[in-house]
Design a protein around this nucleic acid. Structure first.
Length: 642
RNA sequence: GCCAAUGUAGCUCAGCUGGUAGAGCAGCUGAUUUGUAAUCAGCUGGUCGGGGGUUCGAGUCCCUCCAUUGGCUCCA
């Protein structure tokens, strides 16, 4: 007998070779029905896989992330089966589950698979699912595995097999489809009740752009039709929050063909919000000891040769221009200019740390396929600063930068984030990274220490550092689940050396400072894009271009409206008067759609009582109050950055 | 840059197998002076992304370029 330990600590005995399914059934038929896979001694098992030794067990259902993964992984196999039966001769790459469903990379040979084929594949999948085919796990020798895929002529699977060790190879089979796969899988295809294939795209084999491009088919499946419907509603909701849509509706920004791709034009509302943000950042950073500087948008080639950007970063810069026999570049970053400012004066250890900030406009030649609304653009303004400090000051400075992030995140109610600590790959020294192994080791160690000390949760990602040093990026999720990098905090030991930046030490020697590049609010473009989705276009009051709208019911109420506006303007509250001859219903609707946070409705009653009828966007009537009270209400929120 | 899809009025979209553009909203004009999410009527507005081709005839078919979108790759 073997001992099986349950999550609640209970232990039961079973015959060796019992399966998860049988154990679940022995407890409760509901559990057996609900479970998709099981975690056995920490490893996710098929419910049909025999358990041979003492083990802990935890059943995984649709409610668990790993249960979903199992479900979607099996769905990928089902899709492959459908594709193979519809388009015989298709070769298969990899087909994993992802956050929202699954995909399979396929090589359909002569037959092109397009979006038009998806309904056909979906239908076939449904048909196959209803056949209630079990997923069979089979351990197989490497030799037999190679024979199978050689026979099939699937070079992709053969390539994957090459890297696998004999004795650790498993096949999964359901219906007429066999795949090389680690598993695990759900017991049976009939669990898959709702299927939606979402799109097809190209994907390089093994993620390398030098390899052939395969066709990637994305899909998502559910154990209940209703869940698919809910998911579809959720996707529609997400679309409404898309910053590109909101940016247009709220007149924040626009693009124009004649201006160029990735070059946003900020409309007055957008410009207003940016300037409010800047005002806030300047104040916050002044308090944190930063000095602001200003630098030009272009510089001579030599600056970027010195900085090392030309060898490492040239393809992301706009092409050079020739002026009077000299080559100039548009700046893609502010740091080289700032280094020259550091270098403009003799510096002593007594001056350090020096923190130079600039909301500098940069231009980056992002590849055309990478542009994405405001999130990836070619002209951008960074919330940038460079800190020059001694090695001793480094940890403290780095910590202070992290604290600044957290402060900003709190202000903008960003609760979900992850710090990614990017380190270098020693094999790529001199190619992707500045060739200075000692300093890489030293600085990575320092950053790691700060992270451990401050107790901030982080993940370490190898081979993603900047060319000049390790960095921390902060990953956030917009309200619609879009993930991207906002803040960045980078260590740079290389540029101070290449620019020969020095300060005088206590011993009257010369030493190179360490530089920290940081941009907590990322770029204006990305940050506004993020905020649009984060707040669904309902910006906090302090950022709103218009905080309130006064809606007079008839012409005769306009003069009262103006006197109120003046009073509120005296308290630095911003608003408009809708003096159109329109019904009050229409005025309210228009103001609601513009997402102006507060409305004041003015009619005879208000003129008589001297009070205002307040209405809140998205919430409705707030009742009557004095102008004073209304002003206080808004003022308090603005003061608290709400 | 690569694979695929899309591109019709300021916005959202319709336009069947080719027969020379249509709606709602917005805008303008007029009437309406209105109590918590759309008052009514009339009008204006498009070289159908650009260029080329096939055809008696192209928004519709073909080629090409541009842009956008979904991915891949990339991302200081």
């Amino acid at each position: 007998m073997i001992k099986i330990t349950f999550p609640d600590g209970n232990i039961k005995e079973f015959d060796p070779g019992i399966t998860g399914m049988e154990i679940a059934k022995s407890i409760h038929h509901g559990l057996a029905k609900r479970s998709l896979s099981a975690k056995v001694n920490g490893e996710v098992y098929d419910l049909t896989r025999p358990i041979k030794t003492d083990a802990s067990i935890e059943f995984l259902s649709w409610e668990e992330k790993e249960g979903k993964s199992t479900f979607w992984h099996s769905s990928a196999h089902l899709m492959a089966e459908a594709i193979e039966s519809l388009y015989p001769g298709t070769k298969f790459g990899i087909g994993p589950p992802v956050d929202q469903g699954f995909y399979y990379d396929i090589d359909p040979g002569d037959h092109q698979i397009s979006a038009d084929d998806l309904p056909k594949i979906e239908k076939k999948m449904m048909e196959l699912a209803r056949q209630k085919n079990a997923y069979h796990r089979k351990e197989i020798s490497k030799k037999d595995a190679i024979a199978y895929f050689s026979d099939k002529g699937d070079q992709y699977k053969l390539e994957l097999l090459e890297e696998l060790e004999d004795g650790h190879i498993t096949f999964y089979e359901q219906g007429g489809f066999t795949d090389l796969c680690r598993g695990p899988h759900i017991p049976n295809t009939e669990l898959i009740k709702a299927i939606k294939l979402t799109n097809v795209s190209g994907a390089y084999w093994r993620g390398d752009e030098h390899n052939t491009q395969m066709t990637r088919v994305y899909g998502i499946t559910f154990p209940k039709q209703k869940e698919l419907e809910e998911w579809e509603v959720m996707m529609e909701e997400a679309q409404k929050r898309d910053h590109r849509k909101l940016g247009k509706e709220l007149e924040i920004f626009t693009f124009d063909d004649d201006v160029g791709p990735g070059l946003p034009l900020w409309l007055p509302n957008g410009a207003f919000i940016i300037e409010k943000l800047e005002e806030f950042a300047k104040k916050t950073e002044e308090e944190a000891g930063y000095d602001r500087v200003r630098t030009p948008h272009i510089a001579k080639e030599n600056l970027y040769i010195t900085s090392g950007h030309l060898p490492y970063y040239k393809e992301s810069m706009f092409p050079p221009m020739e002026l009077d026999g000299t080559t100039y570049y548009l700046k893609a970053m502010n740091c080289p200019h700032h280094h020259k400012i550091f270098d403009a004066l003799p510096r002593s250890y007594k001056d350090l740390p020096i923190r130079l900030a600039e909301y500098g406009t940069c231009y980056r030649y992002e590849k055309s396929g990478e542009l994405f609304g405001l999130m990836r653009v070619r002209s951008l303004q960074m919330n940038d600063a460079h800190i020059y400090c001694t090695k001793d000051q480094f940890e403290n400075e780095f910590k202070r930068v992290n604290e600044l992030y957290l402060k900003y995140f709190k202000t903008f109610e960003i609760e979900k984030y992850v710090m990614r600590f990017s380190t270098h790959d020693p094999e790529k020294l001199g190619k992707k990274y500045v060739d200075n192994p000692t300093l890489w080791a030293e600085t990575e160690e320092m950053v790691r220490n700060v992270l451990i000390e401050t107790g901030v949760p982080y993940v370490e990602v190898p081979d993603e550092a900047a060319f000049y040093g390790p960095k921390i990026d902060i990953q956030v999720w917009s309200a619609i689940g879009r993930e991207f990098t906002l803040a960045t905090n980078q260590v740079d030991f290389a540029q101070p050396l290449s620019f020969d930046l020095t300060y005088t030490t206590t011993e009257n020697d010369r030493a190179h400072p360490i530089v920290i590049h940081r941009a907590p609010l990322s770029t204006h473009e990305r940050f506004i894009g993020f905020l649009l989705e984060h707040y669904a276009g309902k910006f906090p009051l302090w950022l709103c271009p218009k905080q309130y709208a006064i809606l007079p019911i008839a012409d005769r109420h306009i003069s009262f409206a103006e006197s109120i506006k003046t009073k509120l303007a005296n308290r630095n509250l911003r608003g408009t008067i809708d003096d159109r001859v329109e019904s009050i219903g229409k005025k309210i609707r228009d103001t609601e759609l513009k997402k102006i946070p507060y409305m004041i409705i003015l009619g005879d009653k208000e003129v008589e009582s001297g009070q205002v009828a307040a209405r809140k966007q998205g919430e409705g009537d707030q009742g009557s109050m004095s102008i004073e009270e209304f002003g206080n209400l808004l003022q308090t929120k603005v003061d608290n950055l709400e």
